[in-house]
Design a protein around this nucleic acid. Structure first.
Lengths: 343, 343
DNA sequence: CTCATCGTTGTTCACGTTCACAAGGGTGAG
DNA sequence: CTCACCCTTGTGAACGTGAACAACGATGAG
């Protein structure tokens, strides 16, 4: 354990500001000024510092900076089911935008359904000293828990909650659902089912609301929606159930995966889509155009959503921007819908 | 801007160890010992500290800890195309496992195809002072760039690179491809095409190798594989191209999305899957069971992969475990394959 | 020529934690 | 009774950075 020679490298430690300063023949504060490009530095000095940084492969120590400024420059994302296309695309976009703004991103996933799992996830984010929180694809319970924790953080949610406390930003799910429903009605369908998302999910509720709103607006009789779990698997079994009665000519599924499962069940019953039954989905995942038949669905611009989300979060608390936080979805008509022919 | 009263709260600052220490009537060091549960603390003292922490809602300051220990307890993930199911599932699993071990995770995404983009992504991770790096779904170029940067970090890649420098862990892509190919041969197919992934991708190469190996092993003639881009869209157009000649009875696609596109093109040509043409995919994404027809494919256990990945990274450098880093994939036979009937 | 001012750079401290070491009190052996 | 030792706790320094303030030289006005 005696002192070792260590000819060139002084320590195995990463170079610090002081090392750069020494090499450049200035004080560490001057180096700091160069890094944060403060005004009033002589060009020649600045260049010398930059050269030294380059030569030493210097990297600012984020922890030290965070300590002294008490700013972590980190954004937290709280999400559920991040293997689904929508959340994944949103996370991606948020991360890109955050990085561009010099922020890092950490994510935490809600594992189960109990609220302890939610608390744990938020705890992990708080441990990271996040400066802002984005909530993706949430369930109502998430918000209740969040509200109960009384966080002192800017929070943006990617789905409108209806509550006023936090700012939200979302694709207008209700309008999307109305577009889908109206499309079916205009094709001549009179008996339309809705295969909804799970109870308690904000998005599922909004889509269901949109469906019921439009049906009522057009004086159409409605039946109670089926509650699903977003998976193709569930769509398949729901389809088999529904086909026992078959008192409908169209189904609006709350997402593309369930629509896929539905179509599977319908084909199994030797019925035709859209001849016997029309199907509309929601999300426009990349695969939807190649389902059989290609799926009519509602497109959400996840990337745009992510970008605006970060802008909202980092743009500070400039209110007023709060209410253009709604992005209009568009209907994409493909082969899975048509007039109710075989009846 | 005058001083405000602030009756109760001394500062708006978060409570620190000293605050806890003062409240509990001990020194900050004792608090530190409680947090890191060091031995030799009287139970009564410990409890008093815990109570104070609870009362003040104390949270350790990660930045301060990182500064003094020079350990960030953060793992970096470098990924490409994280909206795809495979990478997304892997990231999820890695994050869960890392969190369980008390580590945080940051991800960086390779945006384009130039190596500057790769360098930038790694730079962002290094700014976070990551202690280990996981590389997911990489292209060869990623590794070249990585090697050029000579990082002093433990690196684990989720796909075998063939190079010895870094430790890798992977589903055995070659074996998976052989399973798929053998299945087609055993069904009686003699002319089989391979729709491969993009050039330069490790996984794509491995699957192609597996395909060619098995074909050669069984003395089957092979044609040059088609190179795709993983998307259903490409699969669709590739299918249209291939069907102009139609000198084959089966196609092995390098992933499920391309297989989906292929089946779309085949139906458009009024041909039957599997009657006219059999299709095998790769990945077993959750939707694959509900494609039409349900897709025969190769299942990879992404979750297991992620778990082992973190174990490998954090388990330190205990060599010897290095070579059980291969997870066997399994073939899942569904409706998209059958004997070549209509010929 | 003198003094104020501005542009540039340096000095010192604080952030919240862990580490190395020291100090205090109790216990047991001789 | 005394001393050594262990258990428990405290003290001071250090990590790398940014903020506040000070200091220095040059410049320009009077």
């Amino acid at each position: 354990m005696a002192d070792e020679p260590e000819p060139v490298a002084k320590k195995s430690r990463a170079p610090s500001m002081h090392d750069v300063a020494r090499l450049a023949g200035v004080s560490h504060q001057t180096v700091s000024r160069v890094i944060n490009d403060a005004p009033n530095i002589r060009d020649e000095t600045k260049q010398r510092v930059l050269d030294s940084m380059e030569q030493l492969q210097y990297r600012p120590n984020r922890a030290a900076r965070a300590l002294v400024t008490s700013r972590s420059r980190t954004i937290g994302i709280l999400s559920a089911s991040r293997t689904n296309y929508g959340p994944a695309a949103s996370i991606q976009a948020i991360e890109d935008a955050a990085n561009a703004a010099g922020y890092a991103v950490t994510t935490a996933n809600i594992q189960g359904f109990e609220s302890t799992s939610i608390v744990r996830a938020i705890d992990r984010l708080l441990d990271q000293a996040i400066e802002g929180l984005v909530v993706i694809a949430p369930q109502r319970r998430t918000f209740d828990t969040l509200a109960g924790m009384a966080l002192r953080l800017p929070i943006v949610t990617l789905q409108s909650t209806g509550t006023d406390g936090d700012r939200s930003l979302s694709v207008d799910q209700i309008m999307g659902a109305r577009l889908a429903t109206r499309h079916l009605i205009e094709l001549g369908h009179r008996s339309i089912y809705h295969l909804a998302g799970p109870q308690d999910w904000i998005e599922a509720e909004a889509r269901m609301t949109g469906f019921l709103d439009e049906m009522n607006a057009q004086d159409m009789p409605t039946t109670a929606p089926f509650l699903g779990d977003w998976t193709a698997e569930f769509g398949y079994f729901a389809g088999r159930e529904l086909l026992r009665v078959r008192d409908f000519t169209a189904i609006f599924a709350a997402n593309d995966q369930m629509a896929l499962g539905l179509m599977h069940a319908i084909r199994d019953a030797r019925l035709d889509v859209p001849g016997d039954i029309s199907i509309v989905g929601f999300d426009d995942i990349p695969d939807a155009a190649h389902f059989w038949p290609p799926l009519t669905t509602v497109r959400q611009d996840f990337a745009e959503l992510g970008r605006r989300c970060v802008a909202l979060l980092l743009g500070g608390l400039d209110a007023g921007e709060q209410y253009d936080g709604i992005i209009a979805p568009t209907l994409v008509v493909r082969g899975s819908t048509g007039p109710p022919l075989n009846r």
